[in-house]
Amino acid sequence: MTDLTRKRFAQLGQQLQLEQLTAVRKQAEGWRNGLTALTGLVGVVFVLKGRESVAGMPAVWRWTTAALLVLAFALLLTGALAAVRAAHGRLGQRMWLSGDRLMSAVLDEVEHTQDVLTTARRCSVVGLSAVVAAIAVSWVVPAEAAKDEKPAGPQVLVSTPVGITCGELVLSNGDAVTVRTGGKGKLRRIPAGDVRSLTPTSRC
């Protein structure tokens, strides 16, 4: 009994042998477009919603964020280039274009395209994860403690007969000099008559 379905599938197999490179290129183009769109989407959503600067973060977390972003950039760049390579590979370069060798080259190219596409997917996923991790760090890590923050006003040394007081200058007029001293911001008023000198300083 003649089973034409078997023959049809044999014909399909012969056709697929010739068209698998075209098929894998189309597949790679789809992945390239998808990965590019995903990278752009994540970049827009997270970067716009995130902290604008890493300034004010503790040094460890600042460097962590920077390292994550550098890593993410390298991975996303590698992923994007790999996806482009997969979608636009080179076939028949520097080889004899005989039927046998070209058939081998097509199979090699299809396998290589699959491998490059896998690399692109992995790099993009890890890179995007690194971006998200960097943004999450910038969201979660609090700003440095107040002791490291710059005071609002200038720091001064106030010399009096009983000693020297250092603090942030709050007010100075003919009656007194008021400075904010200590970590808790306690105000101290020094009468003008007791002040011998008032010297600016970088820190107390």
Binding site: Q17, Q20, V24, Q27, M103, L107, V110, Q114, D115
Partner: peptide, 27 residues
């Protein structure tokens, strides 16, 4: 790939038929 050679049992033409291993899809 495999290469199958032999005569056609109907028209007697010598045929060469190749069947390659499918490599589509990630390894």
């Amino acid at each position: 790939w495999y290469t199958v050679t032999g005569p056609c049992p109907n028209c007697h033409a010598n045929s060469v038929f190749r069947v390659a291993y499918g490599v589509l899809g990630p390894y």
